[in-house]
Amino acid sequence: MSSTPPIQAELVRTLAQLLDDTNLSEIEYDTGSLRIRVARQGGAIHHYAPVAPAAPAVPAAPVAQPAGVIHHEDAANHPGAVTSPMVGVSYMSPEPGSARFIDVGAVVAEGQTLLLIEAMKTFNPIRAPRGGTITRILVTDGQPVEFGEPLVIIE
């Protein structure tokens, strides 16, 4: 299926322990193919997905994103980033069990629905501000999202 590596739980735990031992607020670990950052934010420890390589030439099965992955900070500044206009919860399909709006590698047209964000039973379709290829999807189904958080990158 995808080339996404499994979460390196032991490595994250080791880094988190190191964070506690050293009282640092943040540690980044980079092997070139894998990059993990653990940071202290209000007591929570986050881990980051490795930077995705360029979009695969042939889109295959949906790329599984490990639960709990949050966006890479650089994504917010990416020129192709589509950011959230609201706080809410993201959904990748119109309803549970139905086909996803998009997958990595999909070509989308301007105005096409990329995902839904729900807040208080208001379902906001998030539309592509421009046409292009989806190179990254930074949110998962049922994930809380903040205002301005990058959702998808279109290149």
């Binding site: 609201m86 964000i117 807040a119 208080m120 208001t122 906001n124």
Partner: peptide
């Protein structure tokens, strides 16, 4: 304002 739309439900 997307956030305002959600208030309309209340």
């Amino acid at each position: 304002d997307f956030q305002a739309a959600a208030q309309a439900g209340f």
